[in-house]
């Protein structure tokens, strides 16, 4: 043991080179361990089959003016409302400086007739009511979240209650006048 721990014949230069060798080995080993860790971590990310379903196409031709549908996109509901003239007017008429999360209606729709939003309350993730006929639509003619009483208007903006932000607008494109691809 003694002979091992006292490299009596080594020059300092030599021991410096040897230290470098050890650090290099540790470094390369660490790189290897990290490259092994990445596929393990990455395996928990959305897989190919999940990503393949990440966009859906919706046929809008069956939705009458004044009604709304719920479709499932990425495991969450998306509300698509065919808005009436009155609802569009209401949404546009709001003074945005009075809003909790100021956004104009024009920023939230591509085509004023169609409001497309993710139907998950931005407070704690409940599903707001107001999509199906006869459900309470809150004080602002939009949606009402029963969990903690958030009121959303006909543009899906938060008007009253604990939610911090407006209902999210997913990325979507109109493929034709009556079909839209969400995602």
């Amino acid at each position: 043991m003694a002979e091992a721990t006292q490299p009596n014949s080594d020059h300092e230069e030599d021991s410096g080179r040897r230290d470098f060798l050890n650090y290099l080995a540790i470094g390369v080993g660490a790189v290897g361990a990290a490259s092994f860790a990445w596929p393990i971590i990455n395996s928990m990310n959305p897989s190919k089959d999940v990503l393949a379903l990440a966009s859906i196409e919706v046929d809008l031709s069956q939705i009458d003016v004044g009604s709304a549908i719920k479709v499932v996109w990425r495991g969450k509901p998306v509300f698509i409302r065919h808005r009436t003239e009155k609802e569009i007017e209401e949404a546009k008429a709001v003074d945005i400086s009075t809003l909790i999360d100021p956004e104009t209606d024009a920023d939230r729709v591509q085509n004023a007739d169609w409001l497309i939003i993710v139907g998950v309350c931005t407070h704690l993730g409940c599903i707001p009511m107001g999509t199906a006929d006869g459900e309470p639509r809150g004080e602002y003619d939009g949606w009402f979240c029963p969990c903690h009483g958030s009121h959303y208007d006909s543009s899906g903006r938060i008007r009253k209650g604990p939610s911090p932000t407006n209902l999210l607008v997913p990325t979507y494109t109109f493929l034709t006048d009556s079909t839209v691809r969400i995602g």
Binding site: A4, P7, L21, G29
Partner: peptide
């Protein structure tokens, strides 16, 4: 390739560590 390099490096490290042990 990586493991070949790593093995070469470990051979050097091991020899270095054991150089004074009979």
């Amino acid at each position: 390739l990586f493991l070949a390099v790593f093995t070469g490096l470990m051979i050097a490290v091991k020899r270095n560590v054991w150089r004074n042990v009979k």
